[in-house]
Design a protein around this nucleic acid. Sequence first.
DNA 1: GAAGTGTACTATTTCATATAGTACACTAAA
DNA 2: TTTAGTGTACTATATGAAATAGTACACTTC
Lengths: 125, 125
Amino acid sequence: MISIDYQSKLPLYEQIAQKFQTLILKGALPPDAQMPSVRTMAVELSINPNTIQKAYSLLEQQGYIYPVKGRGNFVSDSSALVRQEKKSLLEDVRQLIQEGKELGVRQTEFIQVIDRIYRKGDSND
Amino acid sequence: MISIDYQSKLPLYEQIAQKFQTLILKGALPPDAQMPSVRTMAVELSINPNTIQKAYSLLEQQGYIYPVKGRGNFVSDSSALVRQEKKSLLEDVRQLIQEGKELGVRQTEFIQVIDRIYRKGDSND
DNA sequence: GAAGTGTACTATTTCATATAGTACACTAAA
DNA sequence: TTTAGTGTACTATATGAAATAGTACACTTC
């Protein structure tokens, strides 16, 4: 379910948190679904439980999950998070495009990238 | 000319290298222009000369500058680097757009971002 | 020769990361 | 009630990257 890249400069706990963020934002983990227990994840990934705990703390702080004492951690309602994530992503795209323009990338090149992605697969906008 | 963010998780030497990369790619530092000396930069930024040296080594390794013993470091011809950077940037954009689509961002939203950037300012493509 | 350059070392400090181990309170089920 | 499984909070330790400090040497220019 979750894989680790030991070559990455990103700390393990951030990698783990990011993987779960993606799963939650895309709905693979629906609201109120139970997260794997800290100890289970630790065994599964051959990683120290404290590292998992740190990842979960981060996820809780960011609003992705909520803890219930003695029972476990559970997925929060992500609709607000999706909105926030879209906004942040659009801002990132804006900065990249701006940089691209300054480097001489033509508008048509960006348009092409978008067209290819939205043409293939399902028929979204 | 160069500013440092001590809050950033990025190492100082990488921050410095990135700033120079931008300056070189955008032509603010033309080919064969002399880079500030390691010692000068160190004093200017109140940073250890070794850290500047490390940034310059990175820039040299990436092809942005070339050293001349006893004289200094100089800016390389950046045309190849610009091409490479454009390609890398387009790939980054592609990934972001793909993610955005999966989160439910509409194609028109991305188009709007591009239009705004390319409409304002000079009249490029 | 003097000043300014790159470059190569060693040593040390600092900090984030990750691990190891223990402990305690809570919940659910037998 | 007991047991197992959960979150959570500690302390201690090890490791490695990053940054600093200091020194040294070869080269170029004036």
